[in-house]
């Protein structure tokens, strides 16, 4: 087993109006890594470059211990991919898809596939075009699970789905990583999903990685100071990551909530959600 299922190092892709700039992060084996960022931040470009759908202008990608350029079909078959929206033609049915994948993947697990379809209430004979968005997404995930995948890469797999389906899908992710050889990279702008499932968070903004941290570090260490103008002026700006002026108060994001509490005992300091952290980095002012 390799230590990291995915290593992205200095990944660069230049377009006329956008640059994915020197993106680096890892997906440790046995973990779920959430790739977050606003729309257009570079999440899909990162995933497309990792998967070789677009050619990178710089950097390197190592998947399951192999450089992406030299990956053979055997290694490729261990990567399960789910894209946002449609993945399969509408004319196919889950049953026909089974026959297609049986001929493509050497390790296709037909029994597991049909048991997953049953578990997810997906009729094998129903045309994909007649399935709901949630059913289509579940089908894509079921297919990604059934060829002995060790690494799942999902691009906005939960967007546009209702909370119940999203919750089912997140449970499937958590089941998948029970095996420590399995890992997931999932991009999403629904941070609450990642708050539930992810072990690490990689935040991309304007094509650059702003931070790559353990989720628990963000949840248990980061905090938001809420205070008035006078109190805000008294705060040492070196200790603040970013701040925002709201209607009636000032909000400041700090990396060490407990240290801030000790230093400013009168201030209200709340734990920061991933959403808030993202907003501070994107919309807040920084020194």
């Amino acid at each position: 087993m390799c230590e990291n299922a995915l290593v992205v190092n200095g990944l660069t892709k230049k377009y006329r109006d956008f640059t994915l700039d020197n993106v680096s992060f890892t997906v440790p084996s046995g973990s779920i890594v959430g790739l977050i960022g606003e729309n257009g931040a570079g999440k899909s470009t990162t995933i497309n470059a990792i998967l070789g759908l677009i050619h990178k202008d710089g950097g390197s990608v190592e998947i399951l211990g192999q450089p992406d350029e030299t990956m053979d079909n055997q290694a490729r078959s261990q990567i399960g991919v789910v894209f946002d929206g449609n993945n399969f033609p509408d004319m196919l049915s889950p049953g026909k898809l089974n026959r297609v994948f049986r001929d493509i993947y050497p390790q296709w697990d037909e029994q597991r596939y049909f048991s997953l379809l049953e578990k997810m209430n997906l009729p094998a004979g129903k045309k994909i075009g007649k399935c709901s968005k949630g059913m289509k997404m579940k089908l894509s995930i079921a297919a990604a699970f059934c060829h002995q995948s060790r690494l799942l890469i999902l691009d906005e797999a939960t967007s546009g789905l209702d909370p119940v389906v999203r919750d089912d899908i997140l449970d499937m992710f958590l089941d998948f990583v029970q095996d420590e050889n399995h890992s997931i990279l999932v991009s999403s702008h629904i941070t609450s999903d990642l708050e539930k499932a992810a072990d690490y968070i990689v935040f991309i903004h304007e094509g650059q990685v702003i931070f790559s941290k353990a989720k628990d570090e963000l949840r248990y260490k980061y905090g938001v100071i809420r205070c008035g103008a006078a109190q805000f002026d008294a705060i040492d700006k070196e200790e603040i990551i970013a701040w925002r002026k709201q209607d009636y108060e000032w909000e400041a994001l700090v990396a060490d909530r407990e240290a801030a509490r000790r230093k400013y005992p009168k201030a209200v300091i709340d734990p920061a959600t991933i959403d808030e952290i993202m907003l501070f980095y994107v919309k807040g002012e920084r020194k």
Partner: peptide, 18 residues
């Protein structure tokens, strides 16, 4: 054209085939 519009094109690019 169906491959493109259905998203299969992206899926096929990550299958274990060259």
């Amino acid at each position: 054209n169906i491959d493109r519009s259905s998203g299969w094109r992206k899926v096929s690019a990550v299958l274990p085939v060259s």
